[in-house]
């Protein structure tokens, strides 16, 4: 068992898999689902209050870890934008025969554009593979946190969490 959150800064798969917000492999591979990487008991619950489907439970006390009720999750993305920790994303293993889709929060300028080829990175920020931007969405209710959707090779399904920041002026 390797714990890396408090030494290297990112949660290891072992750490994630022992928490109630990180869905099991079978669920992750079934279709679009929220994946919650929030493994410390902090006083916070916008994930719970933002979900229209009641698919995230924090409850009382507010420091409980968020629990995903996977069969209720519709993959709508509201929790992704609402989470102040930027700790939730949505992954869809079934996006196409070869590609998975990830929708993640991205608060950097410049924003990627639809069709851009970008570098997908892992939890340490290390390049993993190439990805293609499928959508960039910013609704008023997201309160200035854009959501970026990227298609990338399925073989890197679990590893990829974001993209390398783009160069240039915002």
């Amino acid at each position: 068992m390797t714990d890396t959150l408090k030494t290297l800064g990112y949660p290891s798969l072992d750490e994630l898999k022992s928490t109630p917000g990180y869905p099991g492999e079978d669920i992750q591979k079934k279709g679009p689902v929220a994946i919650i990487e929030c493994i410390e008991e902090i006083p916070c619950n916008p994930c719970e209050t933002s979900c229209p489907a009641g698919a995230i439970k924090v409850g009382d006390p507010i420091t409980n870890l968020p629990r995903l009720i996977a069969n209720k999750c519709r993959g709508c993305g509201r929790c992704v934008a609402a989470c102040p920790g930027l700790a939730i994303y949505i992954k869809d293993y079934t996006y196409s025969a070869e590609k998975a889709l990830i929708t993640f929060p991205y608060e950097y300028f410049p924003l990627p554009q639809k069709g851009d080829r970008v570098i997908a990175v892992n939890r340490r920020g290390k390049p993993v593979c190439e990805g293609e931007i499928m959508e960039v969405k910013l609704l008023g209710s997201y309160n200035k946190t854009p959501l970026v959707s990227m298609a990338y090779p399925r073989e890197f399904f679990e590893e990829v969490v974001s993209i390398k920041r783009l160069e240039g002026e915002g």
């Binding site: 959150l5 408090k6 030494t7 800064g9 990112y10 990487e37 974001s162 390398k164």
Partner: peptide, 15 residues
């Protein structure tokens, strides 16, 4: 908070 370190970490910053 781990959620803060994790988002800085995935931007490639070493701790």
């Amino acid at each position: 908070y781990g959620v803060h370190t994790a988002k800085v970490c995935r931007a490639g910053v070493p701790f």
